[in-house]
């Protein structure tokens, strides 16, 4: 196994008019190939910033960060990852299939390759039959599925997901979570997943990174020993609840620091 993401003493400070804000401080983390890693913590703990730093959307101010042994910028230019944002960010002037084909157009795939990949990824996220619809004709859950298809279309090995289901109701969310697990199972991708839901993090992950704010830092890294095949009712099992309790303890430890300030 080789490290897909490797961060050493990573720090990021935003300079604002009100002074410096430390978004990340001394983050050390290694993510191996094929892992499903969740980042959990209260808002302002830097979990999204860390994901954006991996994606080269933010630049770290200290420490080192390697993606597949490259700098984040090289990795971005090599199209090493697909990014799923909090909002679907589908372009309303494109049909769903054209939206999924957008990265393929930019990366210069032939139209035959585009058609083949669009069909494959649309099937993967169960959106077959909606190719010709426009984003605003679809429900929120379907839009977010389309944005996942778009991130998968060019077959990057790393999938970065920033609270992709945060805006959806719990029923849709449960459904998409179990579909995401199946998808991960089938594609063998490495997934980094930002969330602030404990059950979601425990249900999905092989590794849970607990973070706390001011300054954003990692307080606990939990390796989950749940089996890879996870029916939804695994969430009532004692093993699941034990991991959830440990995550909750980690979050509480972060909060006590906050209350002391």
């Amino acid at each position: 196994m080789s490290a897909v993401v490797s961060a050493q003493n990573l720090g990021l400070t935003f300079r604002t008019n009100d002074g410096d804000v430390v978004a990340l401080s001394d983050v050390n983390l290694t993510i191996e190939k094929g892992e499903f890693v969740s980042f959990i913590g209260p808002s302002g703990c830097g979990k999204t910033t860390f994901l954006r730093t991996i994606a080269d959307l933010e630049q770290p101010t200290s420490g080192t960060l390697d993606i597949n042994g490259q700098t984040p910028e090289q990795a971005r230019k090599a199209r090493a990852y697909g990014y799923v944002f909090q909002a679907p960010a589908l372009y309303p002037w494109r049909t769903i299939e054209k939206n999924v084909a957008l990265p393929l157009e930019i990366m210069g795939y032939t139209s035959a390759q585009q058609a083949e990949r669009v069909k494959r990824t649309m099937d993967l996220v169960n959106l077959a039959g909606f190719e010709k619809k426009y984003p605003w004709q679809l429900s929120g859950g379907m839009q977010q599925r389309a944005s996942i298809a778009r991130a998968l279309a060019f077959d990057a090995d790393l999938l970065l997901m920033d609270e992709p289901f945060g805006a959806l109701d719990e029923i849709v969310r449960d459904h998409l979570n179990s579909e995401l697990l199946k998808l991960w199972e089938r594609t063998q991708k490495t997934i980094c997943f930002v969330t602030h839901s404990i059950p979601e993090a425990v249900y999905l992950s092989t590794k849970i990174v607990v973070m706390s704010p001011r300054p954003g830092r990692v307080t606990d890294i939990i390796e989950s020993d749940l089996p890879r095949a996870r029916p939804l009712d695994i969430r009532e099992s004692p093993e699941f609840l034990a991991i959830a309790a440990r995550v909750r303890d980690g979050l509480r430890a972060g909060h006590s620091y906050e209350e002391a300030v």
């Binding site: 959307l57 230019k77 090599a78 944002f85 909090q86 909002a87 960010a89 990265p103 930019i106």
Partner: peptide, 13 residues
């Protein structure tokens, strides 16, 4: 929007 432009950046467009 910022997200739409970030998306293009992730594709190294």
């Amino acid at each position: 929007s910022a997200i739409e432009r970030d998306l293009m950046r992730t594709y190294a467009a």
